[in-house]
């Protein structure tokens, strides 16, 4: 029973890591550079939701505020790409990576300026609501997190596999020049990818907020999600989710059965192990270019 309880909590936090990792992978696949501000975008998404929902602020209904917050963060993601990242189009990836780290800092300070540095908690309809199955306690927040992750994964899968725009995003990530030759507006597509990453970051942020308090430095969680993306194989969407789940599950078990501190080390130790054994990650989608 204890194992099942740990597993459930692990899966729920794994879903959050997985969704942030998804944002890393989406942007990496499309633009071949890593967006280190992904965790801070999650933080911003969570705070925007807080602003909309909490009775101290605007007090909108929860289920209305979520889509609104997602839309706002998608717009912010698009704007970041269109106004800042796109200016570096064609520059070395290194420059873009440094730029995203800087964006992360800026977002953190903006959030601190607006909402303060004290931890705050989001008012959700399922605070303290629990389901009990013969000794197993399932928090409503855990059900929410897992359900939403499944739904979002399904939506993203359908979008990429079935829609013309999703297919164009895949094509542009596989061969940018050829996508240009097919008439795909690659720059606008990159902006849309950032918008999707902003949207998923918001969902992850709301999930995180539903399980605990948020403060402007929670974006540092992004580093753990980065490890998840590496474990899954940087470039594979199912891999990112799986990597997130693995890290989410390993943490509570290491905390319960390991010495103090093991739970903090475990995700990165696992990342190192995966890098040694399977350098391209579990779901590697790397193909060396043939001449």
């Amino acid at each position: 029973m204890e194992v099942a309880q740990l597993l459930l909590g692990g899966i729920a936090s794994g879903c959050i890591y997985g969704l942030i990792a998804l944002g890393f992978v989406l942007i990496y696949k499309a633009t071949e550079s890593v967006n280190f501000a992904q965790g801070d975008m999650m933080m911003l998404g969570a705070f925007i939701t807080l602003q909309l929902v909490n009775t101290d602020y605007w007090g909108l209904p929860f289920w209305l505020a979520i889509p609104l917050a997602i839309a706002i963060m998608a717009a912010i993601g698009y704007a970041l790409e269109a106004l800042i990242i796109r200016k570096l189009f064609g520059q070395p990836q290194f420059a873009v990576v440094i730029l995203t780290i800087a964006i992360g800092f800026v977002l953190r300070f903006i959030a601190g300026f607006i909402w303060g540095h004290e931890p705050q908690s989001l008012e959700t309809p399922f605070i303290g609501v629990n389901l009990r199955f013969s000794g197993l306690v399932i928090g409503m927040d855990e059900v929410f997190v897992i359900g939403v992750t499944l739904l979002l994964t399904l939506l993203l899968y359908l979008f990429f596999a079935k829609t013309k725009l999703g297919m164009a995003m895949q094509a542009a990530s596989q061969n940018q020049l050829a996508a240009y030759y097919m008439g795909v507006p690659v720059k606008r597509i990159n902006g849309l990818v950032w918008a999707i990453a902003g949207g998923t970051a918001t969902v992850a942020g709301v999930m995180f907020a539903a399980r605990g308090a948020i403060d402007p430095s929670m974006g540092l969680l992004g580093i753990k999600a980065f490890a998840a993306a590496v474990i899954g194989g940087f470039g594979s969407l199912p891999g990112a989710l799986l990597g997130g789940l693995i890290i989410g599950i390993i943490e509570p078990f290491a905390a319960r059965y390991g010495a103090p501190g093991y739970s903090q080390i475990a995700p990165y130790a696992l990342m190192l192990l995966v890098l040694i054994v399977r350098p391209n990650g579990i779901f590697s989608q790397v193909q060396s270019k043939k001449v």
């Binding site: 297919m167 895949q170 596989q174 061969n175 050829a178 996508a179 097919m182 795909v184």
Partner: peptide, 14 residues
């Protein structure tokens, strides 16, 4: 310069 991870029909549709 085909799209390596799309199948033949998806490439043509692109």
């Amino acid at each position: 310069e085909v799209f390596p991870f799309l199948n033949v029909e998806e490439n043509l549709r692109m």
